[in-house]
Simulated scan of single mutants.
Amino acid sequence: MTVNLPQLRAFLAVVDAGGFSAAAAELGMSQSAVSHAVASLERELAAPLLVRATPVRTTVLGEQVLPHARIALSAVRSVEQIAADATETMTGTVRLASTPTVCQGLIPGLLRHWCEDQPRITVRVFEGDSSEVSAWLENGTADAAVLIDPPPGPGIQLAMDGYRALLPRDHPLAGEPLVDIRDLEDDQFLISPNGCEARIRTIHHLAGLRFTPTHRVRDLATLISMVQAGIGVTVLSEVSRSLIPPDLILLPLEPRTSRRLVLTGPDARPWHPAIRTLAESAAHYLARTDSGAPFAVEGPAPALP
């Protein structure tokens, strides 16, 4: 049995893209070449790996092969990047995952900076909720992630992201320098049930309030639109500031709490070598822009693998 890297690369591309045509575009190959590579892998393994449907999905065997294929290609990328690092020509593609608020509020500026500072490194962004991001990092779908309040370990803290009250500009408290969550008790409270909910519950608990949201909205844009419409108020992290329209205002909130945004790699396999370069570049960028940005970058970066 001879399984080769082009076969595994084609198999993973089809799974991740959801079809042969999209995978071909991603790999810069013809659709027939991708189809041939996957078919040859299936012949080597003497069983089908994919169900040819829309979208394509894995068979039971394909699901078992998938994590091992990801590990194999991750190891190859690491070898290639170690060699590139030795010759000071860091190149490659890093798949970066994070949550919607971080992807929308923090990542665009970093992507623009990385494009200028590290033009040989391509960063592809995957957006998902906290559980999806952690799973992608663990199973190899992503090479790196910006995690929220991860356990102590290797990584670099990009920012301390505080929580703010989001109010219409005609709200009675909109002119105040600071809002106490207790002063919003008579307002209808809106919440997006994602990774922020636990911290917003904590804010209410610290203030001695029951947490009783009136509406639960999954999409951040819908949540903001509802505040615009005067339906209620909410609490968002500071990273959301760039998404806030001019008729709304984000104000400092009491009790104060914040979350750590940490760029890190997987626990169970070697890191893509370019992550170190991206992390150091991001730290320098955020330190330079901190005076005009809503984040606090605190302390030196911990050692990276």
Rank of each mutant, 00 (worst) to 15 (best):
G175Q: 06
R288M: 13
T122H: 12
I231M: 15
F11R: 05
V15Q: 00
C115H: 14
G162H: 14
L209T: 09
F295P: 00
L223M: 10
R201Y: 11
A46T: 07
G18N: 02
D149G: 06
V123I: 11
A268H: 14
Q157D: 11
A46F: 07
P172C: 09
P177E: 13
A287H: 12
D117T: 15
S74A: 15
I191N: 08
E254D: 14
P55H: 06
H68T: 12
T277Y: 05
P172N: 09
L66G: 01
A47T: 14
I275C: 06
G232W: 01
E197L: 08
R182T: 15
V94P: 01
V94L: 13
A274K: 06
H204S: 06
P119Q: 10
S225G: 13
G232Q: 02
R112G: 06
R259H: 13
A303C: 07
P213A: 05
P300H: 13
A22N: 02
E127W: 00
P252W: 03
Q81M: 04
A83I: 08
L206N: 08
T54M: 00
H272A: 03
H36T: 09
G230H: 01
C103S: 15
P172V: 12
I249M: 04
L243I: 03
I203K: 07
T141A: 14
W271R: 00
P172G: 11
I191P: 01
P213M: 02
T234Q: 06
L12A: 01
A24M: 06
G109N: 10
V239N: 08
N194V: 04
T122M: 05
R52S: 00
S35G: 10
T222A: 15
A97F: 07
S237T: 14
L106N: 04
H272N: 11
V262L: 03
S242V: 15
V125C: 13
Q157G: 13
P305F: 03
D219F: 09
L96R: 05
L41G: 04
I71R: 14
R199C: 05
G299E: 12
W136H: 04
S240R: 06
V179G: 05
P172W: 09
L243M: 15
A69C: 05
P302M: 08
D85H: 12
A24W: 00
V65F: 11
G18V: 02
V217M: 13
S21N: 10
H171W: 08
H284N: 11
S35M: 09
V76N: 07
G92D: 08
G292R: 12
H171Q: 03
T59A: 02
Y163K: 03
A145Q: 05
L41N: 03
L278A: 04
E238F: 02
F189E: 10
G265E: 02
L66C: 01
P266C: 10
Y285N: 05
G105L: 12
W114H: 04
R77H: 13
V76T: 09
E132F: 02
Q104P: 10
E138Y: 10
G265Q: 06
T99P: 08
T2I: 15
T257M: 11
L236D: 07
P150Q: 06
T99C: 11
V65Y: 04
